[in-house]
Simulated scan of single mutants.
Amino acid sequence: MQEDIIERIVLKTIDIPPLPPVAMKVMGLIHDDHASLNALEEIISRDQGFSTRLLRIANSPYYGRDRKIENISQAIMLIGFETLKSLVIATSIRDLHRRFGVFEQKLWEHSLGVALCGSLVAIITNLATPDEALVCGIVHDVGKTVINNTLPEIYIKIYDKVYKEGKSVKDVEDEVLGFNHTIIGNLIAKKWKLPEKMEMVITYHHDYPYPTHEDPAFADICNIIRVSDQICLKLGIGVKDPIDIPIDYESLGITEDALNELIGLFKIKFDDQKDFLLS
Protein backbone atom coordinates (compact mmCIF):
# COMPACT_ATOMS: atom_id res chain seq x y z
CA MET A 1 0.00 0.00 0.00
CA GLN A 2 2.78 2.44 0.94
CA GLU A 3 4.56 1.64 -2.35
CA ASP A 4 1.38 2.41 -4.31
CA ILE A 5 1.05 5.78 -2.58
CA ILE A 6 4.68 6.67 -3.30
CA GLU A 7 4.30 5.61 -6.93
CA ARG A 8 1.23 7.83 -7.38
CA ILE A 9 3.13 10.78 -5.86
CA VAL A 10 6.12 10.14 -8.11
CA LEU A 11 4.11 9.80 -11.31
CA LYS A 12 2.38 13.14 -10.64
CA THR A 13 5.80 14.81 -10.49
CA ILE A 14 8.23 12.88 -12.67
CA ASP A 15 8.02 11.84 -16.31
CA ILE A 16 9.15 8.20 -16.46
CA PRO A 17 10.43 7.81 -20.05
CA PRO A 18 9.88 4.72 -22.22
CA LEU A 19 12.78 2.62 -23.42
CA PRO A 20 13.93 4.13 -26.75
CA PRO A 21 12.33 2.40 -29.80
CA VAL A 22 15.58 0.94 -31.17
CA ALA A 23 16.38 -0.47 -27.73
CA MET A 24 12.94 -2.08 -27.44
CA LYS A 25 13.37 -3.76 -30.83
CA VAL A 26 16.89 -4.97 -30.09
CA MET A 27 15.90 -6.33 -26.67
CA GLY A 28 12.94 -8.11 -28.26
CA LEU A 29 15.15 -9.78 -30.85
CA ILE A 30 17.76 -10.80 -28.29
CA HIS A 31 15.06 -12.66 -26.36
CA ASP A 32 13.77 -14.31 -29.55
CA ASP A 33 15.42 -17.71 -30.04
CA HIS A 34 14.56 -17.59 -33.75
CA ALA A 35 15.96 -14.11 -34.43
CA SER A 36 18.79 -13.95 -36.93
CA LEU A 37 22.01 -12.00 -36.74
CA ASN A 38 21.01 -10.21 -39.95
CA ALA A 39 17.74 -8.99 -38.41
CA LEU A 40 19.58 -7.67 -35.36
CA GLU A 41 22.19 -5.98 -37.53
CA GLU A 42 19.50 -4.35 -39.67
CA ILE A 43 17.68 -2.81 -36.68
CA ILE A 44 20.88 -1.47 -35.14
CA SER A 45 22.16 -0.10 -38.45
CA ARG A 46 18.98 1.95 -38.94
CA ASP A 47 19.92 4.07 -35.91
CA GLN A 48 23.15 5.80 -36.85
CA GLY A 49 23.77 7.20 -33.38
CA PHE A 50 23.37 3.85 -31.67
CA SER A 51 25.36 1.90 -34.25
CA THR A 52 28.21 4.43 -34.07
CA ARG A 53 28.34 4.15 -30.28
CA LEU A 54 28.23 0.37 -30.42
CA LEU A 55 31.22 0.29 -32.77
CA ARG A 56 33.08 2.76 -30.56
CA ILE A 57 32.53 0.58 -27.51
CA ALA A 58 33.50 -2.59 -29.37
CA ASN A 59 36.76 -0.85 -30.34
CA SER A 60 37.29 0.74 -26.93
CA PRO A 61 40.32 0.14 -24.69
CA TYR A 62 37.97 -1.64 -22.27
CA TYR A 63 37.67 -4.60 -24.63
CA GLY A 64 41.32 -4.38 -25.64
CA ARG A 65 40.99 -6.09 -29.02
CA ASP A 66 43.96 -6.36 -31.38
CA ARG A 67 41.94 -5.84 -34.55
CA LYS A 68 39.57 -3.04 -35.47
CA ILE A 69 35.86 -3.88 -35.55
CA GLU A 70 34.51 -2.28 -38.70
CA ASN A 71 30.83 -3.25 -38.86
CA ILE A 72 27.86 -4.15 -36.67
CA SER A 73 28.00 -7.83 -37.59
CA GLN A 74 31.59 -8.12 -36.36
CA ALA A 75 30.71 -6.19 -33.21
CA ILE A 76 27.82 -8.49 -32.36
CA MET A 77 29.94 -11.59 -32.97
CA LEU A 78 32.77 -10.14 -30.88
CA ILE A 79 30.90 -9.01 -27.80
CA GLY A 80 28.04 -11.54 -27.84
CA PHE A 81 24.30 -11.19 -27.32
CA GLU A 82 24.44 -10.83 -23.52
CA THR A 83 26.97 -8.01 -23.63
CA LEU A 84 25.06 -6.42 -26.50
CA LYS A 85 21.95 -6.35 -24.33
CA SER A 86 23.93 -4.51 -21.66
CA LEU A 87 25.27 -2.03 -24.20
CA VAL A 88 21.75 -1.37 -25.50
CA ILE A 89 20.68 -0.45 -21.98
CA ALA A 90 23.81 1.63 -21.38
CA THR A 91 23.29 3.54 -24.64
CA SER A 92 19.67 4.14 -23.67
CA ILE A 93 20.80 5.66 -20.38
CA ARG A 94 23.15 7.98 -22.26
CA ASP A 95 20.30 8.99 -24.56
CA LEU A 96 18.20 10.08 -21.56
CA HIS A 97 20.34 13.20 -21.27
CA ARG A 98 18.07 15.59 -23.13
CA ARG A 99 20.41 18.42 -22.29
CA PHE A 100 24.09 17.87 -21.82
CA GLY A 101 25.61 20.77 -19.94
CA VAL A 102 28.29 20.68 -17.25
CA PHE A 103 25.99 19.18 -14.62
CA GLU A 104 24.73 16.44 -16.94
CA GLN A 105 28.29 15.63 -17.96
CA LYS A 106 29.24 15.24 -14.29
CA LEU A 107 26.32 12.87 -13.68
CA TRP A 108 27.38 10.79 -16.69
CA GLU A 109 31.05 10.88 -15.71
CA HIS A 110 30.20 9.56 -12.25
CA SER A 111 28.16 6.68 -13.68
CA LEU A 112 31.00 5.75 -16.03
CA GLY A 113 33.49 5.95 -13.17
CA VAL A 114 31.40 3.61 -11.01
CA ALA A 115 31.01 1.29 -14.01
CA LEU A 116 34.74 1.04 -14.69
CA CYS A 117 35.62 0.79 -11.00
CA GLY A 118 32.97 -1.88 -10.52
CA SER A 119 34.43 -3.97 -13.33
CA LEU A 120 37.84 -3.86 -11.62
CA VAL A 121 36.32 -4.74 -8.23
CA ALA A 122 34.54 -7.68 -9.87
CA ILE A 123 37.86 -8.95 -11.22
CA ILE A 124 39.76 -8.78 -7.93
CA THR A 125 36.92 -10.17 -5.77
CA ASN A 126 35.53 -12.69 -8.28
CA LEU A 127 32.05 -11.85 -6.92
CA ALA A 128 30.60 -10.89 -10.34
CA THR A 129 31.69 -10.73 -13.96
CA PRO A 130 33.35 -7.49 -15.15
CA ASP A 131 30.72 -6.98 -17.86
CA GLU A 132 27.76 -7.18 -15.48
CA ALA A 133 29.47 -4.82 -13.03
CA LEU A 134 30.19 -2.41 -15.89
CA VAL A 135 26.57 -2.10 -17.01
CA CYS A 136 25.20 -2.09 -13.44
CA GLY A 137 27.52 0.82 -12.71
CA ILE A 138 26.24 2.71 -15.73
CA VAL A 139 22.58 2.29 -14.74
CA HIS A 140 22.86 2.69 -10.96
CA ASP A 141 22.00 6.42 -10.89
CA VAL A 142 19.45 6.48 -13.74
CA GLY A 143 16.93 7.94 -11.29
CA LYS A 144 19.05 11.08 -10.93
CA THR A 145 19.11 11.58 -14.69
CA VAL A 146 15.34 11.30 -14.97
CA ILE A 147 14.70 13.66 -12.04
CA ASN A 148 17.10 16.17 -13.60
CA ASN A 149 15.38 15.85 -16.98
CA THR A 150 11.95 16.55 -15.48
CA LEU A 151 12.86 19.07 -12.76
CA PRO A 152 16.21 20.61 -13.77
CA GLU A 153 15.72 23.86 -11.81
CA ILE A 154 14.69 22.03 -8.66
CA TYR A 155 17.41 19.40 -8.99
CA ILE A 156 20.16 22.01 -9.16
CA LYS A 157 18.72 23.52 -5.98
CA ILE A 158 18.77 20.07 -4.38
CA TYR A 159 22.50 19.83 -5.08
CA ASP A 160 23.02 23.38 -3.77
CA LYS A 161 21.30 22.31 -0.55
CA VAL A 162 23.45 19.18 -0.42
CA TYR A 163 26.63 21.28 -0.49
CA LYS A 164 25.39 23.99 1.89
CA GLU A 165 24.04 21.61 4.53
CA GLY A 166 26.50 18.73 4.10
CA LYS A 167 23.78 16.12 3.63
CA SER A 168 23.57 13.19 1.27
CA VAL A 169 21.82 13.64 -2.08
CA LYS A 170 19.34 10.89 -1.22
CA ASP A 171 18.37 12.57 2.07
CA VAL A 172 17.88 15.98 0.44
CA GLU A 173 15.84 14.43 -2.39
CA ASP A 174 13.56 12.89 0.25
CA GLU A 175 13.25 16.24 2.04
CA VAL A 176 12.51 18.32 -1.06
CA LEU A 177 10.64 15.85 -3.28
CA GLY A 178 9.25 13.29 -0.89
CA PHE A 179 11.10 10.52 -2.76
CA ASN A 180 14.61 9.88 -4.03
CA HIS A 181 16.52 8.68 -7.09
CA THR A 182 16.48 5.01 -6.02
CA ILE A 183 12.67 5.01 -5.99
CA ILE A 184 12.55 6.68 -9.42
CA GLY A 185 15.17 4.23 -10.68
CA ASN A 186 13.13 1.28 -9.45
CA LEU A 187 10.08 2.51 -11.41
CA ILE A 188 12.21 2.96 -14.54
CA ALA A 189 13.67 -0.54 -14.18
CA LYS A 190 10.15 -2.00 -13.94
CA LYS A 191 8.84 0.05 -16.87
CA TRP A 192 11.81 -0.91 -19.05
CA LYS A 193 11.62 -4.55 -17.91
CA LEU A 194 15.30 -4.51 -17.05
CA PRO A 195 16.92 -7.68 -15.71
CA GLU A 196 16.20 -8.12 -12.00
CA LYS A 197 19.89 -7.79 -11.21
CA MET A 198 19.95 -4.24 -12.58
CA GLU A 199 16.71 -3.39 -10.80
CA MET A 200 18.19 -4.47 -7.48
CA VAL A 201 21.39 -2.46 -8.03
CA ILE A 202 19.42 0.65 -9.01
CA THR A 203 17.19 0.27 -5.94
CA TYR A 204 19.70 -0.81 -3.27
CA HIS A 205 23.11 0.60 -4.23
CA HIS A 206 23.13 2.72 -1.04
CA ASP A 207 21.92 -0.06 1.28
CA TYR A 208 24.09 -2.28 3.46
CA PRO A 209 23.46 -4.89 4.53
CA TYR A 210 21.43 -5.95 1.50
CA PRO A 211 17.70 -6.26 2.36
CA THR A 212 16.79 -9.69 3.68
CA HIS A 213 13.42 -9.69 1.88
CA GLU A 214 15.11 -9.60 -1.56
CA ASP A 215 16.83 -12.42 -3.48
CA PRO A 216 20.28 -12.87 -1.87
CA ALA A 217 21.73 -13.80 -5.28
CA PHE A 218 22.02 -10.06 -6.03
CA ALA A 219 23.71 -9.03 -2.76
CA ASP A 220 27.27 -9.21 -4.14
CA ILE A 221 26.70 -7.08 -7.25
CA CYS A 222 24.82 -4.48 -5.18
CA ASN A 223 27.74 -4.35 -2.76
CA ILE A 224 30.29 -4.05 -5.58
CA ILE A 225 28.45 -1.02 -6.99
CA ARG A 226 27.96 0.47 -3.51
CA VAL A 227 31.69 0.34 -2.75
CA SER A 228 32.62 1.50 -6.27
CA ASP A 229 30.27 4.46 -5.77
CA GLN A 230 32.06 5.28 -2.51
CA ILE A 231 35.44 5.14 -4.25
CA CYS A 232 34.31 7.50 -7.02
CA LEU A 233 32.78 9.93 -4.50
CA LYS A 234 36.03 9.86 -2.52
CA LEU A 235 38.02 10.63 -5.67
CA GLY A 236 35.57 13.36 -6.77
CA ILE A 237 34.67 11.65 -10.03
CA GLY A 238 31.56 13.31 -11.43
CA VAL A 239 29.20 15.24 -9.18
CA LYS A 240 30.85 15.48 -5.78
CA ASP A 241 29.25 14.53 -2.47
CA PRO A 242 30.15 16.76 0.50
CA ILE A 243 29.87 13.91 2.99
CA ASP A 244 33.15 12.11 3.58
CA ILE A 245 31.85 8.57 3.28
CA PRO A 246 34.40 5.92 4.26
CA ILE A 247 35.12 3.21 1.71
CA ASP A 248 33.65 -0.01 3.08
CA TYR A 249 36.24 -2.26 1.43
CA GLU A 250 36.11 -4.85 4.22
CA SER A 251 32.56 -5.78 3.21
CA LEU A 252 34.06 -7.10 -0.04
CA GLY A 253 36.65 -9.17 1.81
CA ILE A 254 39.64 -7.17 0.57
CA THR A 255 42.46 -5.57 2.54
CA GLU A 256 43.42 -1.90 2.73
CA ASP A 257 46.53 -2.64 0.65
CA ALA A 258 44.38 -4.30 -2.02
CA LEU A 259 42.04 -1.29 -1.95
CA ASN A 260 44.92 1.15 -2.47
CA GLU A 261 46.24 -0.96 -5.34
CA LEU A 262 42.76 -1.06 -6.88
CA ILE A 263 42.36 2.73 -6.60
CA GLY A 264 45.76 3.28 -8.22
CA LEU A 265 44.86 1.01 -11.15
CA PHE A 266 41.40 2.58 -11.45
CA LYS A 267 42.83 6.11 -11.65
CA ILE A 268 45.14 5.07 -14.48
CA LYS A 269 42.40 3.27 -16.42
CA PHE A 270 39.82 6.00 -15.93
CA ASP A 271 42.20 8.77 -16.99
CA ASP A 272 43.12 6.66 -20.02
CA GLN A 273 39.53 5.92 -21.06
CA LYS A 274 37.34 8.76 -19.78
CA ASP A 275 37.65 11.00 -22.87
CA PHE A 276 36.75 8.02 -25.04
CA LEU A 277 33.85 6.96 -22.83
CA LEU A 278 32.44 10.45 -22.27
CA SER A 279 32.29 11.38 -25.95
Score class of each variant (00 low, 15 high):
F179S: 09
F179Q: 11
N180A: 14
H181F: 12
T182K: 11
T182C: 14
T182G: 01
I183K: 14
I184S: 11
G185N: 11
N186Q: 14
N186T: 13
I188H: 09
I188T: 09
I188E: 05
A189D: 09
A189S: 15
K191S: 14
K193F: 09
L194Q: 06
L194N: 05
L194I: 06
L194A: 11
P195D: 11
P195R: 11
K197S: 15
M198L: 15
E199K: 15
V201R: 04
V201F: 07
V201C: 08
I202H: 07
H206Q: 10
D207T: 15
P209G: 10
Y210Q: 06
P211R: 06
T212G: 01
H213K: 10
D215W: 01
A217Y: 11
A219W: 01
I221W: 10
I221A: 05
C222T: 08
C222D: 05
N223T: 15
I224A: 06
I224N: 03
V227G: 06
S228E: 08
Q230Y: 05
L233F: 00
G236W: 07
G236D: 07
G236M: 06
G238L: 08
V239M: 12
V239G: 00
K240Y: 09
D241Y: 03
P242S: 08
P242G: 08
P242Q: 07
P246C: 06
P246R: 04
L252H: 08
L252F: 09
T255F: 07
D257K: 14
D257L: 11
E261P: 00
E261W: 03
E261N: 14
L262D: 04
L262W: 06
I263F: 11
L265W: 01
F266Q: 03
K267Q: 14
D271Q: 13
